[in-house]
Design a protein around this nucleic acid. Structure first.
Lengths: 209, 209, 209, 209
DNA sequence: TATGAATGAGCTTTCATTCAT
DNA sequence: CATGAATGAAAGCTCATTCAT
């Protein structure tokens, strides 16, 4: 029982290398952008040398792309649970948006990948599509489904907002961008913001009595 | 009448140069980001050589900073007109948000500067503050003022949304980010989105009968 | 009569230009050496622009060469007066060396041209020869002539020093190099040094009683 | 025994590199001066490329400074042996000056560093001080000490020359400058010059019988 | 005559990539 | 596996020189 969870064996260490590199690459690329990041910086963060990086990834571009893929955690899966939600549609929508807040602006990985998508999307068109398929489309689809069901059930108003569900979720992006831009320099009161968002969105959607 | 509008004289050319350069720089920097843009690209866009750029701007960094300053058109001034708005607070808010849509996601300059702020804000902290002071703060302040007046007048509900006006305006940022990210690849139906936004926000804010 | 000696007329101004340029070039070239001096620096010192320099001198190299020629004042002429010296050979030698001190280490022009000869002689072999012909050879010849006459007259000892007159004059170069190297940071007591030089040289040369 | 003295191993090569570079830099910088030397010239002399130089030295300026430090061999140490000299003060002084001739004008390294001190001392003030502390000050101090002892012992005359020992040593600088300036184009008969120097200096210093 | 905008060749420095050890 | 010395292709910046005004 002694050696359990001790430092990894050489073999384990080796197996872990690629992931370590991708994680180090994430830190560097998100901090400085693709062009301004040097392969050596990534290596230095791991305490290895440039050559080692090239042992696992053939070029800086591939490193970037694989890092992006590795760090973008599946949001679709999370959304799968939406189907199991119970209660009023208002509460279901609230729960869904809460999930999105957790996964997008509050999750550093997702948030920083959004930055990369905006800054280096020109050079890596794939990541833009990926970002859309991974985050935007599923979220919008889930919101739309819920809103439509709520409308059918007579809980939500029919109207422009119901037809364009992005607008219901757009505050989420606002928080993400705010955090990317200001970090700790202008902290944002997350819970209060979310509360205001729910207040506005649900009042905006609910049938007027 | 003959020679009017011929090629500019030497003096005219010179007077125009700095602006031409700043505008070319805007195109290049926004297309590729600071690090990936070469001074020579900016020059080539104007049909001149690198050296010419350095005749007007001492370093690439200064070129970037002055470009940013030159291209960020005052939003505060636009907002000044808000005070003159008439009619219901709902309409006034609608007019205010429309102004913001025009000036932020629909104005290519502002939109692209937002991208730069996100991608190169780390290297140029000034532009982050500038962006905040120039766009975010005035807009939030204007929305807050209007909402508070609307609440006082009994037209708007008191509530979380009224206390956190960012949430009312956040869809604007959503459109900006969407356009930056997808450009023409996934066009966004602007008018429909705006309509949905107003529908949601005003229903969310108005006193329930 | 009032305006006599007032500011020069345009024609005079023009006629003076080349010299002004050469003098400005002297300041710049001696301060930074040939390679590190920019033509624009020379122009700026005169309050004109680069183009003006090229109106008078076709290239930077020619400017340098002509500057060198222009600033190297004839030492030979000065030495001509040596033939008229009277009195003991010791006194004549003293007078000759004093002339050399005035013309070489104490004359800023000559001193600085010595620096250029050492630093840029590789690129401009002419100036080395020029320096030799203009300063070294005449001085050594004059010293040699005087010493030989002094020996013939029985006033100076025959001996190694008399055969190699450079050694008699070498302290002069020492002062020049010292001043070039240390300028005002380690001032050299000129009169005391010269006195010591005469003391040593004359005692070294005079017949032992 | 076979492979001994074959091409150096990677490790040996690496250990040697910095010195190789400094020596190549010495050749280039002394031949053309700081400004006119290209880092690529230094590299080419070693058969490597520019990049290699920057692997060892961060900037051209640092390369120059470290080269200067590396090539200036301690003169002070040599002078330490002066204290052990025996015999007449004339002979001791002769021995001391001979040491100085060996170390300053006859040693190519020292001689060329003198050239750099004169040509690039403005840009690198440190090397001027270094040159003073390393060569000038110790030499003058040693001469002074010996002369003073010789005066105390009654062997040397009291007088101006004894008070200003630079003058006794100044011929040494003369030879250095001559060689820097004329190299092989006007060779200087070293031994004869030195003989003349001793003849003059000792006769100039010794008590007149 | 004088200007100064513009050029283009060249220099310093950087960095992705390779490869012998 | 890992290293890190070396490369070479840029990229930022400079400056002698030109030329339209």
């Amino acid at each position: 029982m002694a050696k359990t969870e001790k430092r990894p064996s050489r073999a384990e260490q080796k197996a872990r290398r690629p992931q370590e590199i991708l994680e180090a690459a994430f830190e560097e690329f998100t901090a400085k952008g693709y062009a301004a990041t040097r392969v050596e910086d990534v290596a230095a963060r791991l305490g290895v040398t440039k050559g080692t990086i090239y042992l696992y990834f053939p070029t800086k571009e591939v490193l970037f792309e694989e890092m992006f893929r590795h760090m973008s955690t599946p949001f679709k899966d999370v959304l799968a649970s939406v189907g199991t939600f119970q209660g009023s549609y208002a509460n279901r929508l609230r729960a869904l948006l809460l999930l999105a807040y957790e996964k997008i602006p509050n999750d550093r990985k997702t948030r920083e990948l959004l930055r990369l998508t905006l800054s280096d999307g020109t050079r890596f068109p794939d990541i833009v599509d990926r970002h859309f398929d991974e985050f935007i489309a599923p979220l919008v689809a889930a919101v739309r489904a819920l809103v439509e069901e709520g409308v059918s059930a007579g809980e939500f108003r029919r109207g422009a907002a119901a037809n364009y569900p992005d607008v219901v979720a757009s505050s989420i992006l606002h928080v993400a961008v705010w955090r990317l831009m200001f970090a700790d320099r202008r902290p944002l009161d997350g819970p209060a913001f979310i509360e205001a968002h729910f207040d506005l969105a649900l009042n905006g959607l609910l049938q007027r009595s």
